[in-house]
C-alpha cells in the first residue's frame, strides 16, 4: 500500500507521511557520522569518511586547498564551516548554493551572513523539494558551525525536509543515537574549545566502526575567533594535523601499525 505513495516526493500517504523524505533521512542514517560541539569560545566539527582506500589520490589534501579532503567538511564562507552527511553529490550542489548565498549577502550588506540566515537559505531550498513535484529531495543533512556578531558561536542542524534547529552538541549520520546519548552524558555547560575537541574525539572513537582512528577515516575542523583581529577563523585540519591531534588524545594508531601519514 505504501508503494502507491512512494513514486512522488510531494504526495502525502493516507497516514500523513512523505515517504521520499523519510527514505532520504534513512539514507543519511547510514552515512558517515558528523559530530558537532558548541563551546563558549568556538565550535568543533568532526566527520567520519567512508570513501577510503590505498588507491584514493589524496595528494592535494596534504598541503593544497583548505585542508579538507572534499568529502565531509567544507568551508562555506569566512564565518561558517559545514559538515555533511548523506549523498556527497547532493551535498556538493548544496555547498555551492550556500557559498553563493553567503557571497550574495556579503554583496548586499557588506557583512558576513549570519549563521542562522545561511541555514535558512538552504532550508528554503530543501523545503521546496518536499512540495514541488517531479524531483527527488536532497539526501543530505548538514551541521553548520558558525559565528556572527548577533549570536556569537552557533551550531545548527538541517535535514532533507528543510527543518533546522540549533544545538549545543549534536550528531548526524550513522550511529547518531549512540553519539547523541554520549554527548548528552558528557557535555558540560561553558565547555571550552580545547575540551570540546577532546569530547568530540572521544565520542567519535566510540561511534566509529574501526578500532583505531586515523586521518584516512576522519575529517576535523574548528571555528574560533582570531585573538588579534577578533574575526572568525575556520580551520579544517590537514591529515597530518588530524593524526597529531589523535596522538595527543591517545586515540591514534600505534607507530608500527600500517601506513604512515605525512
Amino acid at each position: 500500500m505504501a508503494r502507491r505513495y512512494d513514486s512522488r516526493t510531494t504526495i502525502f500517504s493516507p497516514e500523513g507521511r512523505l515517504y521520499q523524505i523519510e527514505y532520504a533521512m534513512e539514507a543519511i542514517s547510514h552515512a558517515g557520522t558528523v559530530l558537532g560541539v558548541l563551546a563558549s569560545d568556538g565550535v568543533v566539527l568532526a566527520a567520519e569518511k567512508k570513501v577510503t582506500g590505498k588507491l584514493l589520490d589524496l595528494s592535494v589534501t596534504k598541503d593544497g586547498g583548505y585542508g579538507g579532503s572534499g568529502e565531509k567538511i567544507y568551508l562555506l564562507t569566512d564565518n561558517v564551516v559545514v559538515g555533511v552527511a548523506g549523498l556527497t553529490a547532493d551535498a556538493n550542489s548544496l555547498v555551492n548554493y550556500a557559498r553563493t548565498a553567503a557571497q550574495r549577502h556579503l554583496f548586499t550588506f557588506n557583512e558576513d551572513i549570519p549563521v542562522e540566515q545561511l541555514a535558512q537559505r538552504l532550508c528554503d531550498l530543501k523545503q521546496g523539494y518536499t512540495q514541488y513535484g517531479g524531483l527527488r529531495p536532497f539526501g543530505v543533512s548538514l551541521l553548520y558551525a558558525g559565528w556572527d556578531p548577533y549570536y556569537q558561536f552557533q551550531l545548527y542542524l538541517s535535514d532533507p525536509s528543510g527543518n533546522y534547529s540549533g544545538w549545543k552538541a549534536t550528531c548526524i549520520g550513522a550511529n547518531n543515537g549512540t553519539a547523541q546519548s554520549l554527548l548528552k552524558q558528557e557535555y558540560k555547560e561553558d565547555i571550552k574549545v580545547e575540551d570540546a575537541i577532546g569530547l568530540v574525539m572521544k565520542v567519535m572513537s566510540k561511534t566509529m566502526d574501526s578500532t583505531t582512528l586515523g586521518s584516512e577515516k576522519l575529517e576535523f575542523a574548528t571555528l574560533t575567533l582570531d585573538p588579534t583581529t577578533k574575526k572568525p577563523k575556520a580551520k579544517i585540519y590537514r591529515p597530518a594535523e588530524v593524526d597529531a591531534l589523535l596522538q595527543k588524545h591517545d586515540l591514534g594508531k600505534k607507530e608500527d601499525t600500517e601506513m604512515k601519514t605525512s
Binding site: 554583496f107 548586499t108 550588506f109 557588506n110 557583512e111 542562522e116 540566515q117 556578531p149 548577533y150
Partner: peptide, 17 residues
Amino acid sequence: RNNHPLRPQAAASWVRR
C-alpha cells in the same frame, strides 16, 4: 524575519545597493 535589526553599517550598505 531575523529577530534582530540590521546594524547601521549593514543597513547603509543595503540602502546604497
